[in-house]
Design a protein around this nucleic acid. Sequence first.
DNA 1: TGGTTTTACTGAACAGTGTTCACTATATTT
DNA 2: AAATATAGTGAACACTGTTCAGTAAAACCA
Lengths: 204, 204
Amino acid sequence: MAIKDRKERDKLDRRKLIIESATKLFLEQGYEKTSIRNIADDIEYSPATIYLYFKEKDEIFYVIHEQGFELLGQQFTLLSQIQNPFDRLFEMGKTYLKFGVENPDYYDLMFIMRAPLAEIACHANWDAGDNAFQYLVRTISECLEQQMIKAGDPHTISMSMWSFVHGLVSLRIRDRFKSLNIDDDLSENLLLQSLDYFMQNIKV
Amino acid sequence: MAIKDRKERDKLDRRKLIIESATKLFLEQGYEKTSIRNIADDIEYSPATIYLYFKEKDEIFYVIHEQGFELLGQQFTLLSQIQNPFDRLFEMGKTYLKFGVENPDYYDLMFIMRAPLAEIACHANWDAGDNAFQYLVRTISECLEQQMIKAGDPHTISMSMWSFVHGLVSLRIRDRFKSLNIDDDLSENLLLQSLDYFMQNIKV
DNA sequence: TGGTTTTACTGAACAGTGTTCACTATATTT
DNA sequence: AAATATAGTGAACACTGTTCAGTAAAACCA
């Protein structure tokens, strides 16, 4: 059975090889511009081979999609040490903004793109995103319990805060602020200013 | 010279024909799925003909892009009659949400898509969007003057409000709320609830 | 009217995309 | 050693945006 084991390991290795190459190319040039043939060229296999390991292009990028959530999740869990839930909430917002601006391609896949999520939504597999959202809901609930923010439905408040930071990041990385004569350095400050404005407003 | 005039009219007619077909197909199936060949088939011309009237695909959709802004602009100007600037601001938010949810493809082109705006941003031609944003800034300035909302920089507040509603719409039309077990009917209410939450928070 | 030029249009091609499938060569099993 | 299972591939399919040489008709000029 040792042979079968080795074969299975080899198979996983080649899957990993594909993912690593795909991730590399994806971070260099984004989803749309990374073709199956690009990946195949990079790992020196035929394009057809990739389809032995993945059903379709989206399946590869679903893996990268998850990597993105792991990355964001890691940065979120770093904030667990912050005792004051309001401070923690604030830092979560800052972290989210930073993540989006610094990893626009990951962000795109995670929160903007249409394609790969169609599958995900149906298969109810958006655990990573769901976890992050639940973490937000919990933090906001803590704030409410300790009466650090104005009373309200924690679900609505969570959705509001998420929508707010998502709006900032997505308008920013899709260059909608540029047209309003806001240059990049300035706009990064404006994002933080806007978050501050939001936080001051929900503060009790 | 009458002939030249007629020819010019004919040329505009055919341009219009292309745009109308493109708009129709676009509203049926969105940007990506509307190909030049689709449009050519529809108007019963060769694909190459379309390139006599438009430099590239994006140029066609830039026209549709402007149509979208006209549509939203029309709905915004309807609100000018509202005297109370806070009420007007609130209605602008509702109108924005409604527009986005009811015209997801227009919204996509206007505020989410990457491609066609690259050109627009460079050519500093985003007048339509700029106007809408200035209208928002003016309304917010009025609110500030009349001390109906908490003091702050009108620019930051405008950016915040825009980002907020954009976040709601774009997460909604890209199905990011679906995965959180929020069905469509409910989520439309949640959008309004969130807007209400935002407005109550900035209220003085 | 006849010949020339301009205009409008097109078929075919180029280079690219995701994806499939018959086929080959190697490795494993019997 | 022969039969079978596995891994990988070249070539093709049906698309995409875009270009360009070639054609047919309309407009212009003599």
